[in-house]
Nucleic acid binder design. Structure first.
Lengths: 282, 282
DNA sequence: CGAAACCTGGAATTATGTATTCCTGTGTCG
DNA sequence: CGACACAGGAATACATAATTCCAGGTTTCG
């Protein structure tokens, strides 16, 4: 997972000194690579020890390790397929440029999202979904559409899914969950009231909670037994919710395909549901 | 060029000590990243100063720089076993491979979709959407979710949008359209019965029809005044509807962003709707 | 309301790691 | 065979990183 994304995500919740250091790294990552811990300290106006402690708080053994991580992140960022542009979409951009930037943003958020989730965690989520007696999905706004999309897929695999667009019904559904059920809650911010209520209730009932939120620390994340992450890129597209929705779809598509692989009879189910739908086509 | 390749290439022509050091780095690059210059010296049985000199001979200012270069090389190597992969996802694929193939498929369908629609046609569609008194959206199944997503975005721009998940209501909505309205119908196959019915009815009422279908000839296409296209990649992902949905989203996101650019007061509307939603967050 | 426990973050210290210099042994060439 | 070039190690000087310690501020709890 890209350190830079993590830094950006946690920037808000950091202490003052840490925020300044993180800010500098985000703004000038390559500059930072040339600096020593003392140099970075001077550049940010903090002390050398703060720089080292900052590195350690992030989970690295020290400043050197952090540097390697930043280096790696930059290296990967460069490595984009031809014709892809990462930039903020401006009103003055031409048609082609807008297209390229849009594709670039979507690609970036898909990549970052796939990198933000470790294989072991994904495996935990898959196991939970596989073993669940019932799966309830929760989400409002744009997330509700992703939840619905995922529910269709789960239904095609023959799983028992609970999802309703009415939040009152979602809450009453959650109130009858139990230890053998799973609640999967989607909220990019992790702060949508209804989704949180549902998750709290489900947790109280003993259901296993899978959260899908951004990397920013958030209440939903705290409730979760298994935490999956989405990485958006709002700023660059500068418009509502496009890339965070793409990131959620990326993640749920991943889960679906991996479930498919685990479930030997999956293709039968899919075949059946597609056959049934064919009647509704010309 | 990757340091590791350079090392391998020059290995033959190196002096004894250098060859040993280079050999170790080639064989255990990750291990090397955890070692200090003295550590690497010990691991290779040479002296610490030789390690530093070795780094300098390669053109780096010192051991640290060499480490960064190796780190970068590994990062890139990991990220791209041959760039974006466009292949069918197989049950035997590893986790990483699946991810890369999924991203590759999505990227491909986004690119092809953006190429499948000419700028003049897009402009026609934008003009129609801009001038429309009301915009009705139609779609069933996965397309209905895209329609809903797009409707949210249009609502944020302050447009009058008609969309209901109940097809009967959709039909009755269509029956009151007139010449100043637009019907946008989404169906990848272009053969979904309900969507077709709605489009036929809307056409009879004199509304302008925008179709969003695959490139395959289909009945919905024949009805349309303006035809937009989506390009999916079903076969490669070998599972239901993932990339055709992505293609539809790509197209509607494009339309949204381009509408945004045309509409001077768009940001006010977006701001207002986002402010209104904030109340529902923690 | 006030003391204790707890953070944050800087200064000083210590430990670690890196780069340079110096030196020796070996092979090469005139 | 002796001057020279050079690989490469030891020692040293220097740079950088990590830890410890402490002061000031904040929260918590009696």
């Amino acid at each position: 997972m890209s350190v830079l994304k993590v830094l950006a995500a946690q920037l808000e919740t950091m202490t003052q000194a840490d925020r300044q250091i993180a800010g500098f790294i985000i703004d000038h990552p390559e500059k930072m690579l040339t600096l020593s811990s003392a140099g970075l300290a001077e550049a940010t106006g903090r002390s050398q020890s703060s720089v080292v402690k900052f590195s350690q708080k992030l989970g690295y053994s020290g400043y050197q390790q952090l540097k390697l991580a930043v280096n790696k992140a930059k290296a990967i960022e460069w490595q984009t397929p031809g014709g892809v542009i990462h930039g903020t979409i401006e009103a003055s951009d031409s048609y082609m440029t807008i297209l390229q930037k849009l594709i670039g943003s979507k690609l970036l958020s898909m990549r970052e999202t796939s990198a933000a989730n470790s294989e072991p965690t994904i495996d935990l989520a898959l196991a939970a979904l596989t073993d669940a007696r019932r799966i309830q999905l929760a989400g409002v706004g744009a997330s509700s559409l992703v939840a619905k999309d995922f529910s269709y897929k789960l239904l095609k695999l023959g799983r028992a899914v609970l999802l309703d667009s009415d939040t009152h019904i979602q809450i009453s559904n959650a109130s009858v969950l139990n230890g053998s059920d799973v609640l999967m809650a989607l909220s990019h911010s992790g702060r949508s009231l209804e989704t949180l209520r549902i998750a709290e209730l489900a947790k109280k009932r003993g259901a296993k909670i899978i959260s899908i939120t951004s990397l920013q620390p958030n209440p939903l994340l705290d409730l979760a037994d298994i935490s999956l992450f989405t990485v958006g890129d709002e700023e660059r597209v500068r418009s509502s919710a496009i890339t965070s929705r793409d990131a959620q779809l990326m993640l749920t598509d991943m889960l679906f395909i991996l479930l498919l692989r685990r479930q030997p009879d999956a293709y039968d189910y899919i075949h059946d549901s597609e056959t049934a739908v064919k009647i509704l086509k010309v």
